[in-house]
């Protein structure tokens, strides 16, 4: 009897210790995580000189005057937050939707159907995934330039239909989570294949889609090099490209304004992330699960 209570209390003690450890480690990591955001935020309120003298300081002598000045610098230097936001939004949203939808479709084609070239095709996707991006950017730019399609936002959107990484992930996910019985029973009910995909498979893949959508969105939003050389018309520039222009006048870099620009750039991402993360965090109960 007493033995049992000792055991119970020791289990409870271990439980508490574990909890404390979890909280301590998590809080340390959270603080680490917030560090770059806090710095970016704080630096938006600093003058260039204050940033130069100490990038990591959290205080500023005249925070609001500096913020106003940084905002003015931004606006006088081809940085149009609303145009940039709109362009970034169009590119990221469209390419994310194309990316996750067509990747799911392709992954479904590989997982659910048996066709002759299937293995060759999925092998090819994995190989494509391994092509270093440095390699393709040069050829891609030359091609777009020759076609005269620079400054065309769709050149940054349509290629995301073929996103091998996402296909690969979706395939891994479907292999673990797709029960063919559900598909079969839908077929018996007379549903067409495309409808089965849209109405049954896509909802099933929600957690995977949400995960990939976040990564695709972030990747597209932060993409700098390609937009930088493709989008030369200032009405087409994305936010990161505009931030790069703040490096601006030779020998005179407005650091405070750059951090404000970076902060403006990252803000919408945080919103999008908060919106999508609920699918990851809450955990969407899956319909049919292979155990």
């Amino acid at each position: 009897m007493s033995d049992n209570t000792v055991k119970m209390s020791s289990i409870r003690r271990n439980e508490i210790i574990l909890k404390v450890v979890i909280y301590i480690v998590s809080i340390i990591f959270s603080i680490m995580t917030l560090f770059p955001f806090v710095i970016m935020f704080a630096n938006s309120f600093k003058s260039t000189v204050e940033v130069q003298q100490s990038t990591l300081a959290l205080w500023s002598a005249h925070p609001f005057a500096n913020l106003a000045k940084n905002w003015h610098v931004i606006n006088s230097k081809d940085f149009h937050p609303f145009t940039g936001l709109l362009n970034s939004f169009i590119i990221s949203t469209c390419s994310t939707i194309l990316n996750v939808y067509f990747s799911s479709l392709t992954a479904y084609a590989i997982t659910a159907y048996e066709w002759k070239l299937r293995d060759a095709f999925s092998g090819m996707i994995i190989a494509v995934m391994m092509i270093p991006t440095t390699v393709t950017t040069i050829g891609f730019y030359q091609m777009v330039y020759k076609l005269g399609l620079t400054n065309n936002l769709s050149m940054l959107i349509i290629p995301s239909i073929a996103a091998p990484m996402t296909v690969f992930f979706m395939r891994q996910y479907l292999q673990a989570n797709l029960a063919m019985e559900i598909v079969q029973s839908a077929r018996i009910d007379g549903a067409g294949e495309f409808r089965i995909f849209n109405q049954i498979v896509v909802p099933l893949m929600k957690p995977a889609i949400a995960t990939q959508a976040i990564f695709a969105y972030v990747g597209s939003w932060n993409n700098l090099f390609m937009p930088l050389i493709l989008l030369t018309d200032k009405t087409k520039k994305t936010l990161p490209v505009m931030v790069s222009l703040l490096n601006g006048d030779i020998y005179k870099t407005e650091y405070g304004a750059i951090y404000l620009g970076l902060f403006i750039t990252v803000l919408p991402l945080i919103v999008v992330y908060a919106f999508l993360s609920k699918y990851i965090v809450e955990g969407v109960a899956l319909g049919g699960v292979k155990s």
Partner: peptide, 26 residues
């Protein structure tokens, strides 16, 4: 669900096409 996806997709397409069209006369 289908409706949501369909409408989102059509918006995306329209936006992509619009983006394409307005940029041509550089």
């Amino acid at each position: 669900m289908k409706k949501v996806i369909a409408s989102v997709l059509s918006v995306a397409m329209v936006a992509a096409i619009a983006a394409g069209c307005t940029t041509q006369p550089t």
